[in-house]
Design a protein around this nucleic acid. Structure first.
Lengths: 201, 201, 201, 201
DNA sequence: TATGAATGAGCGTTCATTCAT
DNA sequence: AATGAATGAACGCTCATTCAT
């Protein structure tokens, strides 16, 4: 009988090694040999689990970006008022930024790399992800306006999309410029206060 | 009698060709040969003007990111109230986004590419650029608070840095996801309204 | 109590699988993994029966090219006249071409592949095989000439060798170019008629 | 101004180097690096002239197999009798066999290598080439039968196709088994005599 | 005995850079 | 000054073979 292996665990090991190497050297700077060394296995073994180098980042992103929609859906079901829900959604999006920091440069590099962006469908992938957040904001804003808890004096769609960009921009700066965590918290609070003030009737 | 050549003009031609090719194919997807073709000259000629491929993006960024500080400085001198100045600074930053769209993916790709990021000092470069905007916001906020035109109920440093991220995030989403320009304007207005409401006493 | 295994049968299975895969993909295009799948066994098992990939074709050829000498020897013993014997030898050589079609491309590929040709001694192998046919023709021709049943007006050695090339050429074209079987039969008849006419006194 | 180079000559040099290396090591055994060394140039230079390794054999075959049709066409125009024309066609086909010896193993290897055969369209290529010879034989035979110079007692199409296989088989054996040239000539003569005898009325 | 996960030498190809002209 | 032919280090990927189970 052949060696018994937990394939899923090995995939995970490889992905973790790949994350580390991509973070260390960037996608283009990372050689498959580097990843193999980092994962303590032979180059060939990588190809038993992933067909190409390109297959790695897509799976890595799935590790990080999956699950948000569930959490947002739960939030939407909650009994809180719409403003609290919005704020909670923002906090949720910004909460795990330290984890995201490990893949943010990779997102950047691949989004910017036309060929990879297209062959991986990254723009669509991230657009879809951001669209979830956008829908969450839109739905919550509209609901809030309808039951009189959020001011009617704003364009829900434009405001929501602006929030998405804002949240993303903040997370991104935090990750890419190695911002101090406490200072980042302060910024988040400022954002929250501003938003609360704007949304209330 | 040596051929008289306008070196500066030729550099410019090369940079414009490089911008176009980088936009079209990304940095890693662009070959020096592509740039030479786009610039209607021989590959060797490129190297008369730029020592390496890496030298191109840094100069390209200078074309785009220079000049903001002057404009911000002028704004700060203006007679408007601090809130209007802040808002004007934001508008200024977001105004020329269509131009920036030509280099935004390049910024992304190189920021994410560890090796290039470091060898070009890109993080520091952009941090410096964002810091200008940050200083502008901080200074204007503090001045506004000091003369009572801006609420004291905010942390100027944190709020300023949050604004920087926000503005960057919005510009970035506009460029990277090919957002409709009119819709982007709506978002900018929502942002402006929110900020004005927050800053006033 | 060790598992009882019919080693010979398993070898046979592997060889049949290998024949099918080599025919389908060629020697260089066939992976050991393909053969293992075709033989419904693990890759490792192949190596219990054959030490290397190279070992397979040699054994395959033995399956196909053994036995001709016996049949030719029987023919030579027959009471027919020499011309009939020659013609019968040709028919014999061309009779089982449909079977040979399964390995003809493999012969080609390996004969042409210098390294494999040499390490397997293929040229010598096939030369030996053709030499059997050649000897058969020479012996029969000479015998026929000696007892006056075949014209003296030919060089037995050269004629025999020419026949060998001819028969091989015809078989080869039949196999390699997927010639219509009925049309091939017509050609064989034309060959037979021509040879009979030439050999008779 | 750049180095001035006779591109066609360089292509030729590469092809000659490739022919030599393919002959020496076979197609699969030949590395591009070997060819580069044989051609006294860098590996990269090969790719300035040929896009892939696969592109080499196809061009090599064109060097050898082009031109036959012209010669056959000329023959057909000649004032000789049809039997002489047939015989001359055969001689023509077998005349330059020493040259062909340099590429015959390559033909074999690639014809047998399913993947390459298909991607290069080799079967069709050689079938086309053999079909030219076939057409030449058919046309000459039919013409000869029509004007009474060739026996009606044969099926022109089958006989012609048989001749093609025969000629190919002989050439092939000569090349692949390093047959003595003088002995080969004897065989050709035997073939010629046999054919003349068969064709005459 | 049978297996298939693991391996890594090896190869085709790319492309930034050089330099003879 | 301008060119593009030449280069070769570098890298993604393959697959015959091994060996722990």
């Amino acid at each position: 009988m052949p060696k018994i292996v937990d394939k899923a665990a090995k995939r995970q090991e490889i992905l973790e090694a790949a994350i580390a190497v991509f973070l260390e050297k960037g996608y283009h700077g990372a050689k498959m040999a580097d990843i193999a060394v980092a994962a303590s296995m032979g180059k060939g073994t990588l190809y038993e689990y992933f067909p190409t180098k390109e297959a790695l980042p897509k799976e890595i992103f799935n590790l990080f970006f999956a699950g948000l929609d569930d959490q947002l859906a739960q939030l939407q079901q909650s009994k809180q008022g719409p403003i609290d829900i919005i704020v909670a959604g923002i906090q949720l999006s910004l909460a795990d930024m330290d984890e995201f920091a490990a893949v943010m440069p990779l997102c950047f590099e691949l989004l910017g790399s036309k060929a990879l962006n297209e062959s991986l469908g990254l723009s669509e992938y991230f657009e879809g992800w951001l669209e979830q957040l956008n829908q969450f904001f839109v739905a919550t804003l509209v609901a809030g306006q309808e039951n009189g808890q959020i001011t009617l004096d704003l364009d829900a769609k434009a405001f929501a999309r602006m929030l998405v960009s804002t949240v993303d921009g903040m997370g991104l700066h935090y990750c890419m410029f190695q911002m101090d965590a406490a200072f980042f918290q302060l910024q988040c609070q400022e954002l929250e206060v501003m938003i609360r003030q704007r949304l209330q009737c």
